[in-house]
Design a protein around this nucleic acid. Structure first.
Lengths: 224, 224
DNA sequence: ACCTGAACACCGTTCAAGT
DNA sequence: ACCTGAACACCGTTCAAGT
């Protein structure tokens, strides 16, 4: 039952191998599976060994987040309009987060806690400032935008993130049953849309619409 | 150190008193403080007593979420334009969630898992359908909107939600120190906006702008 | 119906000690 | 520098038993 994903010939423990293993584990079994003791056994080591490489569990989680933010391919600044540049930055963030729906929640609170995340924020704030956003508006909008991309990923219908339980099919069926048993008089619109809470018919559409929303919202509150 | 908030003359254990206590505890000390064993001692009872009233811990958390969604004063349907009505519905959601920044994360994944949450979704979907959104668009936009309000609350700068640690002042100071030690060459915009990540100068402004964003975004993706 | 006692299989973390 | 052993103070949950 327990999958061993360690290298059979283990040299040494390192921050990098710990984080890589933790990320893979979280992507497969969810964040709850990431435990100090589990990481230890996966690396054929004692739990306390991890405390030499990381201050505590939170530091491990922080390192996972940092690794993902470091993976964002922030596009170079161009002379394109600010909103087009913003769009491409947000697209890059989405591309980096999408492969990790199960750990997306980890990311939102940690943007401002790692260099790569701060660089991302710097870029977004800069673009907003160039669009005449005040310092306060820019910082608030920037952090909202980054969090919003996270919820776009986590709340994609039918994604693994929604099905927190162990058996995805069972969760799916029970949700469907619950939705279809609703009173049609009280929940007419919900029943019409029920299936779209369970599966995403068109992922590309879903995400491009989400990004459109974020862009339109940002443009909508742009100071005159 | 341990605050006892039980009624000295304890009659009986009930779902309602358990949930009320859990909510108060979470609002004060955060979600991590909400533990079966803590709730038990707060109610002068054995941990296992709770398992008669709730299936498991998740059911307790679900009941907390339901209680908050039940508190949303959904405004009556009027003949006002759909976007004005949407705005007032979202305002009602915000008003219900704002007092509970520390448990806001609990709410997003649980909208569709309680009657009051489903009623809310029904209402929002209905409004979007009346604005010619497709069934898929409407359901996706509705759940995004509800989650977005949550992140508006949780990511309010300087709110208790951001300061997860025990000592809020210490966290605040360390964050400020970290931000101000950034290289001005690489993080010019961030440094300009630094203080707005730490405190919110104008809460009313922050939330009204956030709601404007959500409305503009929704209108922006409205089908032609 | 409502609650307790004892027990199980987990956690994160500290501290002293080993090499 | 890098890791182990033993121990502490917690968790959620089950299961049989009490009233």
């Amino acid at each position: 039952v327990a999958a061993q994903n360690k290298t059979p010939t283990r040299e040494r423990l390192s921050r990098d191998t710990i984080v890589a293993g933790a990320l893979a584990l979280a992507d497969r079994d969810g964040l709850d599976a990431v435990t100090i003791r589990r990481l230890a056994t996966d690396n054929s080591v004692t739990p306390m060994a991890l405390y030499w490489h990381f201050k505590d569990k939170d530091a491990v989680l922080g390192a996972i987040a940092e690794r993902i933010y470091a993976n964002v391919a922030i596009p170079e600044a161009t002379d394109a309009p600010w909103d087009a540049q913003l769009r491409s930055v947000l697209d890059a963030v989405l591309a980096a987060i999408r492969p990790h729906p199960l750990i997306a929640d980890l990311l939102a609170p940690r943007v401002m806690r790692s260099e790569p995340g701060l660089l991302l924020a710097e870029r977004v704030i800069g673009l907003l400032r160039s669009a005449r956003f005040s310092a306060a508006q820019a910082s608030q909008t920037a952090s909202f935008l980054l969090c919003a991309i996270v919820i776009l990923v986590t709340s994609e219908p039918g994604s693994k993130a929604a099905l927190d339980g162990d058996d995805p099919d069972a969760v799916h069926r029970s949700k469907r049953a619950q939705l279809e048993s609703l009173d049609p008089k009280r929940f007419p619109s919900l029943l019409e849309s029920a299936e779209f809470f369970l599966v995403c018919d068109d992922e590309t559409m879903y995400f491009s619409q989400g990004m459109d929303f974020l862009l339109k919202g940002t443009i909508g509150i742009q100071p005159a």
